[in-house]
Amino acid sequence: MSIIYLLIGCSVLLALVFLAAFFWAQRSGQNDDLYTPSMRILLDDEEEPPAEK
């Protein structure tokens, strides 16, 4: 029965670590722009690369 208390404590500690990592990512701007990176692959570049001589 005492192993259950240990496992509950470890799972709560792990959940708090993940929660802290999530808040750190939000505060540091990891999820500021979710739209542009997904659309960048669909847009063609208009400029031609310079020709070599």
Results as ranks from 00 to 15, higher is better:
Met1Leu: 13
Met1Val: 12
Ser2Trp: 13
Ile3Cys: 07
Ile4Asn: 14
Tyr5Trp: 15
Ile8Leu: 10
Gly9Ser: 15
Gly9Arg: 13
Cys10Phe: 14
Cys10Ala: 15
Cys10Ile: 15
Cys10His: 03
Cys10Pro: 03
Ser11Leu: 11
Ser11Val: 01
Ser11Trp: 04
Val12Ala: 12
Val12Trp: 05
Val12Phe: 08
Val12Arg: 01
Leu13Thr: 08
Leu13Met: 07
Leu13Asn: 03
Leu14Ser: 10
Leu14Trp: 11
Leu14Asn: 05
Ala15Arg: 00
Leu16Gln: 02
Leu16Arg: 07
Leu16Pro: 01
Leu16Trp: 06
Leu16Phe: 09
Val17Ala: 06
Val17Cys: 03
Val17Glu: 04
Phe18Ile: 05
Phe18Asn: 09
Leu19Gly: 14
Leu19Gln: 12
Leu19Thr: 08
Leu19Ala: 14
Ala20Asp: 09
Ala20Val: 13
Ala20Pro: 03
Ala20Ile: 09
Ala21Phe: 07
Ala21Cys: 07
Ala21Thr: 02
Phe22Gly: 09
Phe22Lys: 05
Phe23Trp: 14
Phe23Ser: 02
Phe23Thr: 11
Phe23Cys: 06
Phe23Asn: 08
Trp24Pro: 01
Trp24Met: 06
Trp24Val: 14
Trp24Leu: 05
Trp24Asn: 02
Ala25Asp: 06
Ala25Arg: 11
Ala25Gln: 13
Ala25Val: 05
Ala25Cys: 11
Gln26Gly: 10
Arg27Gly: 10
Arg27Leu: 08
Ser28Gln: 05
Ser28Lys: 01
Ser28Arg: 02
Gly29Leu: 02
Gly29Pro: 03
Gly29Cys: 00
Gly29Lys: 02
Gln30Val: 04
Gln30Lys: 12
Gln30His: 11
Asn31Val: 12
Asp32Phe: 00
Asp33Ile: 06
Asp33Cys: 04
Asp33Tyr: 07
Asp33Ser: 07
Asp33Val: 00
Asp33Arg: 03
Asp33Gln: 05
Leu34Val: 11
Leu34Ala: 12
Leu34Asn: 09
Leu34Gln: 08
Tyr35Phe: 12
Tyr35Arg: 07
Thr36Trp: 02
Thr36Met: 04
Pro37Met: 05
Ser38Tyr: 09
Ser38Trp: 14
Ser38Arg: 10
Met39Leu: 07
Met39Thr: 05
Met39Cys: 01
Met39Lys: 02
Met39Asn: 04
Met39Pro: 00
Arg40Gly: 09
Arg40Phe: 10
Arg40Ala: 15
Ile41His: 08
Ile41Gly: 04
Leu42Asn: 13
Leu42Ser: 10
Leu42Tyr: 06
Leu43Glu: 09
Leu43Asp: 04
Asp44Thr: 11
Asp45Val: 05
Asp45Cys: 07
Asp45Arg: 07
Glu46Gly: 12
Glu46Val: 13
Glu46Pro: 06
Glu47Gly: 06
Glu47Tyr: 09
Glu47Trp: 02
Glu47Arg: 06
Glu47Lys: 12
Glu48Cys: 06
Glu48Met: 09
Pro49Met: 06
Pro50Asp: 11
Pro50Ser: 14
Pro50Trp: 13
Ala51Ser: 14
Ala51Leu: 14
Glu52Ala: 12
Glu52Pro: 10
Lys53Leu: 06
